[in-house]
C-alpha cells in the first residue's frame, strides 16, 4: 500500500457523495465516496475483505471494511456504525463533505482459491459489510461463472437492523444466489424467517464438498457458528473469518492489533479458522 506521495500515513481526499441510513436505530449509515483525483482512484486497487482508514482531519481515523466491490467502478462504499469520536463526526456529515481514505489495507478474502467451488457466506448484524463486497464481486458477470453454488445466510437482531435491505430483496429474487435472511425476532410486518444464524445454518445444511465458507459477525455468532460448520464437514482451513481489532497505523507498525505474532491489520483482517486456532485466544 502506497499512500499519497508514497507516504502510507497520508490519506487520499474523497468526497461524500451520498449517505444512506441503513437501520431502524439510525446508527448505521453507508457512505458513498468518490476520489477527487483520478490517480488516487487508480492507485486504490482493492479486493473484497480489505479495509481502509477513514480519516477526518481534526478527529482522527477509523478502520472500516470496504463494503463496495471493485466491480462497482467510480466509488467506494463504507458502512459505519456510530461508536466514537470519528464515526460520530462522520455520521454528522452532509453530502459534499471532503474526508480522507487511507488504504486499501490488509488481506482480502481468498478469492484466488474459489475456482469451481461452492461458496457459503455467513454474516450477522452490521458485520455484513465486506461480505456484501464479496457477494457483489461474485455476482458480477465476469466472476459468477468461476464458482459453483453461492449460498448466503444473513441475520440480524430485528428486521429493522438488517442492512442493505433493498439489495437483499434483489438477491432473494435472483436464481444465481441462494439467500436465507433471518432475524432473531420478527415484528408484526415480518413474514420472513426467524431464528439465530447458527440455527438457520444447521437447517439449510449447505454441502461442505469442495466448498469455502466466509464468515463475519459478532463474537457470539462466531462462537456458535464454528461448531455447526465443523459438523457440516468444513475443515478449519476452508472457514475464513474476518476480525476486528483496535488499530491506528493499519500497516503493521504501531503494534496494537496483534493476536500472537500476527497483526490483524497486515496479516488479516481475514484469517482461516486454522490460522486462528494456532494463535492465542486473545481477541
Amino acid at each position: 500500500m502506497k499512500g499519497n506521495h508514497g507516504n502510507p500515513y497520508l490519506p487520499y481526499p474523497v468526497e461524500i457523495q451520498k449517505v444512506t441510513v441503513e437501520n431502524a436505530d439510525r446508527d448505521i449509515k453507508t457512505f458513498k465516496l468518490a476520489f477527487l483525483n483520478k490517480e488516487h482512484e487508480e492507485a486504490f486497487q482493492y479486493l473484497p475483505g480489505q479495509f481502509a482508514e477513514l480519516s477526518i482531519f481534526g478527529k482522527g481515523e477509523s478502520p472500516i471494511g470496504i463494503a463496495s466491490s471493485p466491480t462497482e467502478e467510480g466509488y467506494l462504499l463504507f458502512t459505519v456504525k456510530r461508536m466514537g469520536v470519528v464515526t460520530s463526526d462522520l455520521h454528522n456529515s452532509e453530502e459534499g463533505r471532503i474526508i480522507g481514505v487511507r488504504g486499501p489495507l490488509g488481506k482480502s478474502y481468498p478469492l484466488d482459491q474459489i475456482e469451481g467451488k461452492n461458496v457459503l457466506i455467513v454474516g450477522g448484524g452490521f458485520a455484513f459489510t465486506t461480505l456484501r463486497s464479496a457477494i457483489r464481486y461474485l455476482l458480477a458477470p465476469e466472476n459468477r461463472g468461476r464458482i459453483n453454488n453461492l449460498t448466503c445466510i444473513y441475520g440480524a437482531r430485528s428486521p429493522g437492523e438488517l442492512i442493505y435491505k433493498e439489495e437483499l430483496k434483489e438477491w432473494e429474487e435472483r436464481d444465481d444466489i441462494e439467500m436465507y435472511v433471518t432475524v432473531d425476532k420478527g415484528d408484526e410486518s415480518w413474514t420472513g424467517r426467524e431464528g439465530f444464524v447458527p440455527t438457520v445454518l444447521k437447517e439449510v445444511a449447505p454441502s461442505s464438498e469442495s466448498a469455502i465458507c466466509l464468515v463475519c459477525g459478532p463474537p457470539i455468532m462466531l462462537k456458535f457458528t464454528f461448531p455447526v460448520l465443523s459438523d457440516l464437514g468444513f475443515p478449519p482451513e476452508n472457514i475464513v473469518v474476518s476480525l476486528e481489532m483496535r488499530m491506528k497505523c493499519g500497516i503493521g507498525k504501531c503494534g496494537r492489533c496483534n493476536i500472537g505474532n500476527l497483526y490483524v491489520c497486515k496479516d488479516g483482517p481475514v484469517f482461516t479458522l486454522e490460522q486462528l486456532q494456532a494463535l492465542p485466544a486473545e481477541y
Binding site: 482531519f57 481534526g58 503494534g255
Partner: peptide, 17 residues
C-alpha cells in the same frame, strides 16, 4: 519498544496529526 498512538490536535481551524 516502538508502539505508538496517532492523534489529531487542533487549534481553531488549524491542526496537526
Amino acid at each position: 519498544c516502538y508502539c505508538f498512538d496517532v492523534t489529531d490536535e487542533t487549534l481553531r481551524e488549524n491542526g496537526r496529526r
